[in-house]
Design a protein around this nucleic acid. Structure first.
Lengths: 206, 206
DNA sequence: TAGATTGTTAATCGATTAACAATC
DNA sequence: TAGATTGTTAATCGATTAACAATC
């Protein structure tokens, strides 16, 4: 249990967390592995296996209690605290990200938003105001930020990534198409709807 | 070769496609499996294995020619044509999606955008104008659309999904947090930045 | 009790990795 | 030739699945 989870297990547990959070919002109290399977496209046996590796969280013939399972998975993933993240880019995508409840639901707080456009500085976005880009370093340190989200045009992405890395950020979520060069100890997640679409199309067409 | 790809292989090939597309935009002509590995976090041996299953596309000591490899992967994934997709929701997220080059780069054309807000109807978005929501059925049929992208609030997502399914759409990309109920022959991809962030944090914190 | 669903086993398959000869 | 990188093998590990007893 003190062992680190494998990448696969951690990814799947995170998805269960998301399904449980939404199911709870829909007023459900209990959920079966079969229902989680329908929402995640992960095999129901796999789900039960993943969970039973950490304890007996379910009740045979009944399913899993959503609230208690949420607590257990959060414990396993150690995501019970609040995490501060920085958003770079206050354009349409940045605004959409900042106003989405999806991060707040999981204890992720958009603690600061930056933009190089002086026009945008000071405007409200999410529950903060857009800060000057020059404030990046100070904010990242003051607010103990380790995650940066890039919602900037592809042409500006590498410089923004370099600046974030320079401030000590270790995890970057890249919403631009650009390929980013970063030191080995920095994790880059590039979000790419087109990639998923291409492969969904493959299975549709064949 | 006439066999269907496994889900894993199709997903990885799609990611290679994205990296190659971007590398070409950056002016590169050749790329090694090691370089692709750095951008995708997929093991270099795995990449060479995936590619060599379909032919000898590389040159030893040199790497892969980006243009020719792009062509080969497109052939394998059968994504050489144009595909029309419908976007539902012309808010900030919808506008961000419509104005991103990421779909067009892969031959995916946002052929129609819908919104229930009469204020938004007629406004330009991407390279089209926002259509009345009532036009959904007609457009989907006329334009041979099989993919729908949902950029609507969570509360409106299920209805929009039902309407898309009713028009014959078989692939739905859901950018809301909502869990969607759909018939078994419809594929739903729910995009969730928070899920990826949670599991990235796990590995950072442990 | 009857029905449902978990927890677990066992068997199979695909992914991952190191290593290295082939060859550009 | 020397250096680099592919293509391929072999070994290991994790994911997937069916099946079913346990039990709520």
């Amino acid at each position: 249990m003190a062992d680190r989870l494998t990448v696969g297990v951690a990814a799947r547990l995170s998805r269960y967390l998301q399904v449980l959070t939404q199911a709870r919002k829909m007023g459900k109290m209990r959920i079966s592995s079969q229902e989680i399977a329908e929402y995640t496209n992960i095999n129901a046996t796999q789900i039960r296996r993943d969970l039973s590796a950490f304890g007996k969280f379910g009740k045979r013939g009944v399913g899993y209690n959503i609230d208690s399972l949420l607590g257990e998975i959060r414990k396993i993933l150690r995501t019970q605290g609040q995490h501060n993240i920085a958003l770079v880019g206050a354009g349409r995508l940045g605004q959409a990200i900042a106003s989405s409840p999806i991060f707040a639901e999981h204890g992720i707080n958009i603690a600061a938003v930056f933009d190089t456009d002086p026009e945008k500085v000071g405007r409200p976005i999410g529950h903060v105001a857009v800060s000057e880009y020059a404030q990046l370093n100070e904010s990242v340190h003051d607010k103990n930020i380790i995650v940066g989200v890039l919602a900037v045009p592809a042409a500006a992405a590498q410089k923004a990534a370099d600046d974030l890395v320079g401030c000590g950020v270790k995890i970057i979520f890249n919403y631009s198409e650009a390929l980013l060069e970063t030191p080995a100890d920095v994790t880059v997640h590039t979000s790419n709807p087109a990639v998923e679409l291409l492969y969904a199309l493959y299975f549709h067409l064949t």
